[in-house]
Computed example of a mutant assay.
Amino acid sequence: MPASINLRTGLPALLLTGLGFLFSQCSSSPAEKNDMAETPVNEEIRYETVRVTASRPTTELSLPGELESYYETDLYPRVSSYVKALHADIGDQVRKGQLLAELEAPELTANLTEAYSKVKAAEAQFEGSRGIFQRVLRTSRTLGAISPADLQTARTKAISDSLGIVAANAHYRSVQQLVSYLKITAPFTGVITDRRLSPGAFVGPGGQNGIPILKIKQLDRLRLRIAVPETYLGDIRTGAPVQFSVRSFRNQTFTGKISRVSNNVRPETRSEMVEIDFPNPGGKLKPGMFASVRLPVSSSGKGSLYVPKSAVTSTMDRTFVQKIVNGKAERVTVQKGDDAVGQTQVFGNLKAGDIILKTASDDLADGTAINTQLVGQ
């Protein structure tokens, strides 16, 4: 049977039916298109990475430091007693040997009196035995008046009683030393920075023996401690001048001298602890202040390493960057140095060309496999 022909178009009816079906599929509703577009696409997160770069050696190294008092100590009681009186409080300037606190212990006072009475008793006993020996000795000069055994007995008794005086005196001095602990004096000239107890508190074994009564710090001489990276240890010389500044006095520079070098490199930071003594007459600077130290160096080795500031992050226990090794993020402990424009100088187990995360993330644990994309700095 021949196919029917549409009189207006001149096309076969069957062909028109097929074209209509195609047009109807192309003009489907927006909702239907959205349903088709909702097919999930597996797009993986890519972390931006950069290469560690090296710069020319510097002639002055900027390092953070902390001021500490030259001497500081907690003052604890040495005997079981009660706090009788406090003669110093927080902020008081005290001199070496100054009375700071008085304690009381009645049993110690009684022991001292008893020990003193034993000394006097021993002295009296020795006086008696010595007198007897002297009389026996004089009598023994008369032939047959005193037997040699009696003379030896009197002599031995006198010697024994003399040694009793020595023992009694030793015991008395030991008790006297314990009683002296009831007066707490300043071990050096400084400032009282803390007071924990009040009059009436029981101190010593069985009481609040773990709490110091007072804390004293020396202020007229301070220590500045800095960690110098291993790269620059060859430039450290005892007696070399060092300049530093503190936030409290932004427009003022202070100068000290390198006094001690620990001669030990810490493996976790690859740095060595250096101490700088600083005379502080008047107590202008305070222990605990952070300082920015400018250390003259002339390293002739490889250049310093720099990374973006965002690549360095700090936690409670360390400062680190995250190095990419075989597609996995690994934390590398570093120490920060100078800050340049958008860059931070770092010291640690890194080398130029290592790939690290451009922005460190504390949420990434060591050994986490990640997808990375190397970008320019």
Rank of each mutant, 00 (worst) to 15 (best):
P57L: 04
P57H: 11
P57Q: 01
T59M: 05
E60I: 14
E60R: 06
S62K: 10
S62G: 14
G65T: 06
L67C: 11
E68F: 15
E68Y: 15
E68L: 14
S69G: 13
Y70V: 09
Y71N: 15
T73P: 06
D74L: 11
L75V: 02
R78H: 13
V79I: 15
V79R: 09
V79E: 15
S81N: 09
S81D: 08
Y82G: 02
V83E: 01
K84L: 15
A85M: 09
A85W: 12
L86Y: 06
L86E: 04
L86T: 10
H87A: 04
A88L: 07
I90H: 05
G91F: 08
Q93V: 11
R95W: 01
K96I: 07
G97E: 01
Q98L: 10
Q98I: 05
L99K: 07
L100C: 03
L100M: 03
A101E: 02
E102S: 12
L103R: 08
L103I: 01
E107P: 01
E107V: 07
E107H: 13
L108S: 10
L108Q: 07
L108T: 07
L108Y: 13
T109S: 15
A110C: 02
A110I: 13
N111A: 15
T113V: 11
T113M: 09
T113I: 12
T113D: 08
Y116F: 08
S117V: 00
S117Q: 05
K118A: 10
K120M: 04
A121S: 09
A121T: 07
A121C: 00
A124C: 00
Q125P: 00
E127C: 00
E127K: 10
G128Q: 11
S129F: 02
S129L: 04
R130E: 05
R130Q: 06
R130C: 00
R130G: 00
I132M: 12
I132W: 06
F133M: 14
F133L: 09
Q134N: 07
R135D: 15
R135S: 10
L137G: 11
T139H: 11
S140G: 12
R141W: 13
R141G: 14
T142P: 05
T142F: 09
L143Q: 08
A145K: 09
I146W: 07
A149C: 05
D150C: 02
D150Y: 06
L151N: 10
L151S: 09
T153I: 06
A154S: 01
A154W: 00
R155A: 03
R155C: 04
T156C: 01
K157R: 13
K157M: 05
A158H: 02
I159S: 07
S160N: 11
D161H: 04
S162I: 00
A167K: 12
A168C: 12
A168L: 05
N169M: 06
A170T: 14
H171M: 11
H171G: 14
Y172D: 04
Y172A: 09
Y172S: 09
R173D: 06
S174H: 15
V175Y: 07
Q176N: 15
Q176L: 13
Q177L: 14
Q177C: 00
S180K: 10
Y181V: 10
Y181I: 06
K183Y: 03
K183F: 01
I184H: 00
I184P: 00
T185L: 02
A186M: 08
A186E: 02
T189D: 06
T189C: 01
